[in-house]
Amino acid sequence: MGEVVVITSGKGGVGKTTTTANIGTGLAALGKRVVLIDTDIGLRNLDVVMGLENRIVYDLVDVTQGHCRLKQALIKDKRFDGLFLLPAAQTKDKTAVTAEDMKKLCCTLKEEFDFVLVDCPAGIEQGFKNAIAGAEKALIVTTPEVSAVRDADRIIGLLEANNLPGPKLIINRIRPDMVKRGDMMNIEDMIDILAIDLIGVVPEDEYIVVSTNKGEPAVLDMDSRAGQAYRNIAKRLTGAEVPLINLDYEEGIVNKLKRLLGFKG
């Protein structure tokens, strides 16, 4: 019996979909059986980030309305045999899916998969309610910005009210150089304010843009710093203890000089 994890944020554009794609792929790379559900009906994107957009025949709405069998709508990933995507509908009415539908769907899927990851739409409307309906765990994605953290706080409150306590926080797109300058909130600041557990910190990484362009999640790139962070989050989700990566990679100017002058290997 697997577990159903919803990835949510309240605010749009903080990286929910990228996070879902990368954690899902990361879990599959660890040998887990994973299904990703895109619940952003009308604005689907997870298919593009995964590079699976040209394989879609049936979607979430087709499944909930009984136009096809669940198996027919699951798209197998190009890279991993144990990874599947259930895409959102793009052209259908977004009221077509209910919270009850999602509950049933998640129940069925977790029988067969180790992880059911639900990519939640932005906002706190019906789409959000649907996405969390079948979830047992929640990951909250935020960025070190006042607006994103505020929305994350709202979401935490709503999750508690919906009997989904103990969400874990992912801080996305952090820039160590700015944190160092005191121009960006640091990890402690955000944990202090939101008072929830941290499951990962993902540094800002240009490679994310490249990976989205290619439809290849960054988690598969061993050189990508964001990819490393996502690999760690995937491991933590399986219960492994992995220390936070050291974000302080920018060399101090003194060290740089020392090295240039040959004082330090």
Partner: peptide, 24 residues
């Protein structure tokens, strides 16, 4: 005197959350 903007962010956030949580 290099305060950076993060303390400002944190302080504003703290206040806004007091408002938000009270209305929630």
């Amino acid at each position: 005197e290099a305060p950076g903007s993060k303390n400002l962010a944190k302080e504003r956030l703290r206040l806004v959350l007091v408002h938000d949580r009270a209305t929630v």
